[in-house]
């Protein structure tokens, strides 16, 4: 894998950034990279990658999130260890940023690193979320995210889904909206996600990220296992 080692995922609240970030980090690990996953979510104290810390460690992915001891708090307290990953060029870094422009604000703190080396800033899109259903809305969102983060979006990730009710038709409709948004933004669609058993026949040169779903409800089976059992 060549290209920038800093991979920043931004997007609307609830667009699936965390799920994509975890899966992308695991994919990089499987390719033999050293991987750091940075949870920059200062917006939402639920369904965050920090809940999977032990599982990710067992897979060789280093996770950094909140200041130690504050993982379960609704405080915008980030760990100083984030700097270690940003500085260590041996690492591929995936940054999972909180939703909406308010979440992207957390990136401002790390601006100096992004001005020193190239980065991927990828907009994660699910057109089946409110406020994301037209290319124009997505264009506006992208511009506001760029304004807050002071960075340039250079790719979009098509994360079209309707949860476990995703059909081929929904997937195709979503892909069309994402393609049009990418065209307005003049950036490529760098990746499309697919959660098996759903399938997607990739066009030539299209990268597919096959998703295992980790952000599960307590009554669903998580690939990370049932962590709270009989503790």
């Amino acid at each position: 894998m060549h290209g920038p080692r800093l991979n920043i995922l931004i997007g609307a609240f609830g667009s699936g950034k965390t799920e994509v970030a975890i899966n992308y980090a695991l994919q990089l690990k499987r390719r033999g990279e050293k991987v750091g996953l940075v949870d920059l979510d200062i917006v939402n104290p639920f369904f965050r990658s920090r809940e999977l810390k032990a599982f990710l460690r067992s897979k060789g992915v280093q996770l950094v999130s909140a200041q130690d001891g504050l993982e379960a708090a609704d405080l915008p307290a980030l760990s100083p260890r984030i700097f270690a990953f940003l500085q260590n060029t041996a690492y591929q870094v995936v940054l999972d940023v909180g939703g909406d422009p308010v979440g992207a604000r957390a990136l401002g703190r790390f601006e100096e690193y992004f001005s020193q080396e190239p980065y991927n800033l990828w907009l994660v899109i699910n057109p089946y979320r409110p406020g994301c259903s037209t290319p124009e809305e997505l264009y506006e969102l992208a511009r506001r995210l760029e304004e807050t983060s002071k960075l340039q979006i250079n790719g979009v990730i098509d994360n079209t889904n309707l949860g476990n009710e995703t059909t081929a038709e929904i997937r195709t409709t979503g892909a069309r909206i994402v393609d049009e948004a990418a065209r307005l933004l003049t950036v490529p669609v760098v990746m499309r996600t697919v959660a098996p058993p759903q399938t997607w026949s990739a066009a030539a040169g299209e990268a597919i990220l096959s998703l295992e779903l980790f952000m599960t409800a307590p009554w669903e089976t998580s690939p990370a296992g049932e962590v709270s059992e009989d503790e």
């Binding site: 609830g14 089946y128 979320r129 409110p130 949860g163």
Partner: peptide, 14 residues
């Protein structure tokens, strides 16, 4: 058409 919503958002829009 169906859309994906968080419980809290769905409650507010509802």
């Amino acid at each position: 058409e169906k859309i994906m919503m968080k419980g809290n958002e769905a409650l507010a829009e509802g």
